[in-house]
Nucleic acid binder design. Structure first.
Length: 506
RNA sequence: GGGCGCGUAGCUCAACUGGCAGAGCAGCUGACUCUUAAUCAGCUGGUUGAGGGUUCAAGUCCCUCCGCGCUCACCA
């Protein structure tokens, strides 16, 4: 408790950096030694002529090793093999890794001792020398001079087994990325997915836009929002649950093809397919309908797969899936009939639907409160698990889709589809509702559902109705869950494996 | 929120029906001038997630809490 006892350890360590164990203490000791030698362990600049990959390529492409390939390299030390008067190490950078060879004869006694005693795995080092090939065939750098460029004070995960603990992997993702090559590949793939998506949309003439994340009113999806507060305006704001209503305002505005790739926030549970913040691509195309969006979806996904993986054939959790267009299309009615025996075109009321379910011996346990919700329940329970896909399921109950246009000749349905790959929803799209009066009615119906206890019902957005009154052309809209697309393309079962910093407690 | 499982050294993992908390890697000391999971000798390293209980004795059994995973519910 007393000051004398509490502040005992190493006077040269700043408060807050007390060593938690001897491994850190050993590195702090080295740091101290370096400073005593007048060496700055964190110099402001580093010099290098080649990345690790460039150094190796330069050597290999040199015609006949007559002229030496001189290089200056820099990177993180990831392995260290001391063999008496010589020493091998590997350094890595984002382009790869290269082996370094140090010899006492080349460096001199003092320099070699400094190297031996003051460096650790994890440190960043700058070296200069020339490239050569070892007896065992590895292209390496023969180092004649070196310099510390950043001292590491915390040990890295073990070299062979790497870092496996899931919680540490998520909480200290930097360690995960350093230690686990496969993880790095997933996030590189993720970046390429987004790049390919942009290319595809840009090539088709879509304009990338940005719309508000902080919104006075949320909408565009059935979900509970996060709330926040703006002090200067003294008002409640919501984090968006979708981009939809703003993007359609831009269709009204005459920007005929727009898209946005951005973060949405939904105040809901967390599981292997849901993170409270996630990335959504939404695009809207004037003078198009939902069939155009189907073509857009399958073409885009196939293009992205080809760009990122080099093929449209993928394996997802053991299932072989070919994303090559065209994807099979099923009406919701047909596919429900196929897997459950219930015909929702015949059973068009909640009562008759439940009767038909009893007839087919389907459990009614989670019976929906309305016809549309019951249809959704049947679909999720009996159809969705079969949809390894890719597949389009089209023509949804109107009640579930307050922003979609009604299907001509089918009063209970709207022109909407969802795309399924690997057994879960990847995309959602519809012919956008552009009738302002019908839209108002749909919002009012949502209000009734909310009054009946549905927390996810969408609030009436008068400002959006007003935009529709100005006039929106027939328009097709599409949303693709980017995280889920990355899951499918990288064969990951959990959304946390494709989000760098997934939501965790505390 | 419910059910099931997990939490041991910096990392990866052991520890039988309760019986002295261990190994490999990493670290430290030494040997070794083409190694690559280098090798060899020696040494150090623990609030067994936290708190309580049962017991002569708890990593192990019981309770509460924290965290993580899977799953159901909820939810696109």
């Amino acid at each position: 408790m007393s000051q004398e006892v509490a502040s005992q350890p190493s006077a040269n360590i700043p408060a807050g950096l007390e060593p938690e164990n001897e491994l850190i203490q050993a590195r702090l000791d080295k740091l101290q030694r370096l400073r005593e030698q007048g060496i700055d362990p964190y110099p402001p600049r580093v010099a290098r002529t080649h990345t690790t990959a460039q150094a190796i390529t330069a050597f290999e492409s040199a015609a006949d090793g007559t002229a030496p390939i001189n290089v200056q390299l820099a990177g993180r030390i990831i392995s260290w093999r001391l063999m008496g008067r010589s020493l091998f190490a590997h350094i890595s950078d984002s382009t790869g890794r290269v082996q370094l060879y140090f010899k006492k004869d080349d460096l001199g006694e003092e320099s070699y001792e400094h190297l031996k005693h003051d460096f650790d795995i994890g440190d960043f080092i700058q070296v200069s020398g020339y490239m050569f090939r070892t007896k065992t065939g590895e292209v390496s750098g023969h180092i004649t001079a070196y310099r510390l460029v950043s001292k590491s004070l915390h040990p890295l995960p073990e070299k062979w087994h790497g870092l496996k603990d899931v919680e540490t992997r998520y909480r200290q993702r930097y360690l995960d990325l350093i230690a686990n090559e496969e993880v790095r590949k997933i996030f590189i793939a993720r970046s390429r997915v987004v790049t390919a998506m942009r290319h595809f949309l840009d090539d088709r003439g879509f304009l990338e836009v940005e719309t508000p994340i902080l919104q006075p009113l949320y909408g565009g999806a059935s979900a509970r929002p996060f709330e926040t507060y703006h002090k200067a305006l003294d008002r409640k704001l919501f984090l968006r649950i979708s981009d939809e209503l703003y993007l359609k305002r831009l269709i009204v505005a005459g920007l005929d093809k727009v898209y946005e790739i951005g973060r949405d926030f939904r105040n809901e549970g967390i599981d292997t397919k849901h993170n409270p913040e996630f990335t959504m691509m939404e695009c809207y195309q004037a003078y198009a309908d939902y069939t155009d969006m189907m073509e857009l979806t399958e073409s885009m996904v196939a293009f992205i797969a080809t760009q990122v993986l080099g093929a449209t054939k993928i394996t997802y959790q053991g299932q072989e899936i070919d994303l090559r267009p065209p994807w099979p299309r099923y009406t919701m009615r047909d596919i429900i009939l196929k897997y459950s025996g219930v015909d929702i075109a015949v059973s068009t009321t909640l009562e008759s639907l439940r009767a038909a379910m009893r007839e087919q011996n389907l459990k009614e346990a989670d019976a929906g409160p309305t016809w549309g919700k019951q249809v959704d329940e049947i679909f999720k329970a009996y159809v969705e698990p079969h949809l390894s896909g890719p597949a389009f399921v089209m023509d949804y109950p109107v009640e579930l889709s307050p922003l979609a246009k009604r299907k001509p000749g089918a009063p209970l349905l709207v022109e909407r589809f969802e795309a399924f790959v690997g057994g879960f929803e990847l995309a959602n799209a519809f012919s956008e509702l552009n009738d302002p009066l019908d839209q108002r009615e749909r919002f009012l119906d949502q209000g009734r559902q909310q009054a009946a206890g549905d927390e996810d019902a969408q609030p009436l957005d008068e400002d959006y109705i007003q935009a529709l009154m100005v006039g929106m052309p027939p328009t097709g809209g599409l949303g693709i869950g980017v995280d889920r697309l990355v899951m499918v393309l990288t064969d990951q079962a959990s959304i946390r494996e494709v989000i760098l910093f997934p939501q965790l407690r505390t």
